[in-house]
């Protein structure tokens, strides 16, 4: 569905320095510099896949997304989406894709969302029957019924996002580009958005590409992740593999039936936290079996669980490593 070969995207920008003097100087001479937003990225994504783009701010995620959507032309390399060259902006291409940006909206601010629906029906030339079916379906899935008649400005952020998603999907696109779709939403609304995107993906076997700051989004939605850092693709694979690679350790959570001495715990691994009833220990992948066996035989346990390190921590480590390299 999506083929990217040796994609490069450079911008030339003028450098702005703070302060009055620098501003005055820049009236006469304006320094330029090249920003290498994307540096030689290649990948391919099959139809129906859900892929998450991970990376710190300014890593090149959104740039890559915009190149895929045809908004930006690649400086070098070849990009094909659904058999089209995105930058040609063919009508057939545009009717197959959609872009949702968490911070930008296409809903008309002072009119009810239903008005934007009607407008998009005309713009995408959606057959009446299909339109009505899609609207009914989206309304049911996202519980839009009470929202469609209210002016957009009166909706809460979460309600607006639901309508924003619906309007972006009216034409049943085959490729969804989601740029920070859950930004600013509360936890339950984030979950709603995730469930919905997944349902849409399964129902229409649409390809989904997501960028998000919330690891939960990526963990819940995307079997495959791509880590982009400083314009380069540094990982492409399943999330558990990524975690294993960055943090090859596990966490053993022990629930105790009675307090134990610290020296009894030390042989198991590194203690992360300890109180009378609960202990968390960090254990290397290889030492896991021995530690668990030892804990089971020597400690007064009520319960024992083995977990991956928290995702946010994995990410922090990942980009800290990247910055050190």
């Amino acid at each position: 569905m999506i083929e990217v070969e040796h994609l490069r995207k450079w911008y030339r920008v003028h450098r702005r320095e703070p302060g009055l003097k620098a501003a005055l100087r820049s009236l006469l001479h304006r320094p330029y510099e090249d920003v290498k937003a994307v540096e030689d990225i290649s990948f391919s994504i099959g139809a129906g896949e859900r892929v998450g783009f991970l990376g710190p701010n300014g890593a090149g995620k959104t740039t890559t997304l915009k190149v895929l959507a045809g908004l930006l032309h690649p400086t070098e390399g070849r990009v094909a989406v659904g058999g089209f060259l995105p930058q040609e902006r063919a009508r057939e291409f545009l009717t197959q894709i959609t872009l949702v940006m968490g911070q930008k909206q296409q809903l008309l601010w002072d009119l009810p969302p239903s008005e934007t629906f009607a407008l998009n029906r005309a713009i995408y030339d959606i057959p009446r029957a299909q339109y009505e079916e899609t609207v009914a379906e989206l309304t049911a899935l996202l519980e839009l019924a009470p929202l469609l008649g209210k002016p957009t400005r009166q909706l809460s952020l979460g309600e607006r996002m639901k309508c924003e998603l619906a309007v972006a999907l009216l034409h049943r696109p085959k490729v969804l580009f989601l740029d920070e779709p859950t930004i600013g939403l509360d936890v339950s609304m984030q979950a709603t958005v995730r469930t919905f995107v997944r349902a849409y993906n399964e129902r229409f076997s649409a390809t989904v590409i997501l960028t998000s700051h919330y690891m939960e989004d990526v963990a819940a939605l995307c079997p495959r992740v791509m880590v982009i850092d400083k314009g380069r693709l540094i990982f492409d694979g399943a999330l558990p593999d990524l975690i294993r690679r960055v943090r090859p350790d596990k966490r053993v959570l022990l629930r105790l039936s009675k307090p134990v001495e610290q020296r009894d715990l030390l042989p198991l691994g590194t203690i992360i936290s300890q109180n009378d009833a609960e202990v968390i220990i960090q254990v290397s992948q290889e030492g896991l079996q021995a530690s668990v066996a030892r804990a089971l035989s020597t400690l007064p346990l009520r319960d024992l669980t083995v977990e991956d390190p928290p995702l946010e921590e994995v990410m922090r480590d990942l980009f800290a490593q990247g910055n050190a390299a």
């Binding site: 915009k66 959507a69 045809g70 908004l71 009508r91 545009l94 009717t95 894709i97 959609t98 872009l99 940006m101 911070q103 930008k104 909206q105 296409q106 998009n120 713009i123 995408y124």
Partner: peptide
Amino acid sequence: QGTFALQLLRPI
């Protein structure tokens, strides 16, 4: 405001 990108992606 950057909403131009969204409008540009519509086929008209």
